[in-house]
Computed example of a mutant assay.
Amino acid sequence: MPAAMRKRVEPIPGTPLPHGILNACTTVVDVGDVHELMGVEWMALGCCPVRQWVDPCLTEAGESPGEESPGERPEKQFCRPEFEHATPITLYAGAECSTLGWTYEEAVQHAQATMDLGEQHGLEAAFWDTRLTTDVVDLTPPQGPVSVAQGVAALEGCLAESYGGVGVLHVPAGAAALLGCCNLLSEDPTTGNLRTLAGNCAIIGAGYSARNTGPGGLPADPGTAWLYITGPVHIRRGPLDVLPDRSASVNIRTNDRRILLERTYVVGTTCTVCAIQVEVCP
């Protein structure tokens, strides 16, 4: 059928994945303070261990009261908290079309719909590149990738050794189905979030799947995927800026209109980031 005979209808709407970085497991705060959107730093909380103290004055079995224990007197250990930081991530969605039959308001609406659907995907990819794959502990054994169940177990063990709270498992969407094979995740009836048996929350990211790289940004081998685990994830999100204004949006030489929507985020996590490569093919 010739294109001129086709009837134009409303676009097919979409819905972001329900367990992505903006819909599950994270704290998202909309902020207007431009200083917070330039990057933040904080003193790490929960990364220092809580140790057992054994009083050397208490007698052991077989010792007589007042008898001194051999060796040096033990001392309590102190942990100096470290400062952590998060850098800004700016995402944009652009729309371009002829001004004939396409108003400024329609252009903004189109760019807005693009941002609404793709914002989560873009943020996941950026967080993967700028944080997850940098300064990370690689748990992959010398013999190569492990099963998904083994990978999740190793990651949770790594996080538990350095952080005593609930963490976040970061899973590419392409590997998500395998998490159901061993009942590794279940849906929290209260929040709808996905959680492991240990209680850690899971993000299933389309943007993660688009990257699927290991520490240092190296691409995953065919038939494998990279999983990561972190402490809690906190997202500061700035206002949505529409650029430019009505008059400046038109290029008078081509009679095309361009609209740009931008938003800045600062995504932070705490303590150790651990990674492991898993097999996704049986």
Rank of each mutant, 00 (worst) to 15 (best):
V148L: 05
A126Y: 00
H35V: 11
T196W: 05
A93S: 10
G238E: 01
R195A: 10
A4K: 09
T196K: 03
E96R: 05
R263G: 07
I89R: 11
V273E: 02
R257E: 07
T270L: 03
T15C: 06
E68T: 15
R51Q: 08
R237A: 12
D256R: 02
T133F: 02
E156R: 06
T99G: 05
G214T: 07
I252P: 15
Q52H: 08
M1D: 12
L197I: 14
R131I: 03
P215T: 08
C274A: 15
V50G: 01
C281Y: 13
V273W: 03
E84K: 13
G144M: 04
T59L: 08
L218C: 02
G216A: 10
L240Y: 04
I12T: 08
R51V: 06
N255V: 02
I235D: 00
E41I: 01
T26C: 15
A4S: 13
Y92F: 09
A206F: 07
A111G: 03
G20Y: 15
A198V: 08
D55N: 15
T103I: 12
R131A: 14
V242I: 14
G66N: 12
V31G: 13
V50M: 05
M43R: 06
A93I: 04
C271R: 03
P244R: 07
A61K: 12
W53P: 01
M115D: 02
L117Q: 14
D256A: 00
I252Y: 12
D241A: 13
R73F: 02
E96T: 05
V166P: 06
T264F: 06
D30L: 08
R80C: 10
G122I: 01
K76L: 15
G32I: 06
G174V: 10
I259R: 02
A177V: 13
D135M: 08
F83M: 14
L22H: 04
V166C: 04
S98M: 02
A275R: 11
P172T: 09
L132F: 00
A202Y: 14
T230R: 10
T213S: 15
P239I: 07
T264Y: 06
N23V: 03
E68Y: 08
R253C: 00
A202C: 11
C48L: 14
E67F: 11
L22D: 01
C274S: 14
K7T: 15
Q143G: 13
R131Q: 13
G217K: 01
G167N: 13
L240H: 08
D188T: 02
W226R: 03
D256L: 02
P219V: 07
V9D: 00
E124W: 00
T134C: 01
L194T: 13
G167I: 14
L227K: 04
P2D: 09
A210F: 08
K76F: 08
A154V: 04
V152N: 01
T230Q: 15
A154T: 11
R237P: 01
I204V: 14
G151E: 10
V267L: 11
W42S: 09
A149L: 11
E119F: 12
N183R: 08
T26M: 05
R257M: 09
N183W: 01
T191K: 01
E60H: 13
H110P: 06
E60W: 10
Q52K: 07
A24D: 14
R131L: 05
